[in-house]
Amino acid sequence: MTFDLYYNRYSGPVRAVWMTVRQLKLDVNFKPIDLAVGEQLKPEFLALNPLHKVPTLVDDGFALWESRAIMQYLCNRYAPDSTLYPKDPKQRALVDRSLNFDLTFLNQIIDVV
């Protein structure tokens, strides 16, 4: 089954989703969004993602944004037995910790900036 992935090639979160797609060998229909010209603000994109961010995934009418949620969804839906996102709660917790590692330092980064 093919799904749509709205992306911008300069987005780090998009690259994370792209690596997951590639690792799982999924068939994806890439749909570029040019952020510089405001394509993310067009009504048809806002209907999919009111936060107007990339990446945005559309799978059989189901729209999802936020790269981490997309990566978890892809593993759960298309590769539930993959070691990329294991079923074992302790192993999955380690993956989740790595996925969210940068959030630990968010307040410190804001203070420095």
Rank of each mutant, 00 (worst) to 15 (best):
L99Q: 11
K25Y: 14
N29W: 07
P86S: 05
E66D: 12
N107G: 09
P80I: 15
L51W: 14
T2E: 12
V112K: 09
A47I: 09
V21E: 01
L74K: 00
T104H: 05
W18L: 10
L46Y: 10
D102G: 08
N100V: 13
D27S: 10
Q91E: 13
D96T: 01
V17Q: 00
C75Q: 14
T83W: 07
D81N: 14
K90M: 08
C75L: 11
L41Y: 14
P86C: 01
L35A: 07
V28I: 11
L46R: 14
R77I: 14
V14C: 14
A63K: 04
F62Q: 01
V95G: 00
L94Y: 13
E66W: 02
I70C: 01
N100I: 12
D102R: 08
Q40R: 11
P32G: 05
L99R: 06
R15Q: 11
P80R: 13
V112L: 14
S67L: 06
R15F: 07
W65T: 15
L103G: 04
L46A: 11
F3P: 00
V113H: 07
Q23T: 15
P43A: 08
M71G: 04
L26N: 09
F30Q: 06
L99H: 09
V21C: 10
N107I: 08
R97C: 11
Y10S: 10
P80T: 12
F101P: 02
D102L: 14
L5D: 06
F105N: 05
K53N: 07
D60M: 13
G38D: 06
T56W: 08
V14R: 07
N76I: 07
L103Q: 08
E44Y: 04
E66Y: 06
R68V: 13
R15P: 03
D60T: 15
A79P: 00
K31V: 10
S82W: 14
V17N: 03
M19G: 06
Y10Q: 14
F105G: 03
D59Q: 04
W65K: 05
Y10K: 12
P32F: 01
L51P: 13
T83I: 13
L51H: 15
S67P: 06
T2R: 09
V95D: 00
L64R: 12
S11E: 04
S11W: 10
V58C: 03
N76P: 11
P80M: 02
N29A: 11
F30N: 05
V112H: 11
N29F: 13
G61E: 14
N100E: 12
V113N: 07
K25L: 08
P86N: 04
L48R: 03
A93H: 14
L103R: 05
N76F: 03
L5W: 02
D111E: 15
T104Y: 06
A47P: 03
R77C: 04
R68S: 03
P80E: 08
D34A: 15
M19Q: 09
I110P: 03
R68G: 04
W18Y: 10
L57N: 03
D60F: 09
P32Y: 01
G61C: 01
P55M: 05
D59F: 12
Y78P: 04
R9P: 04
L5F: 05
Y78S: 01
Y73G: 05
R15A: 12
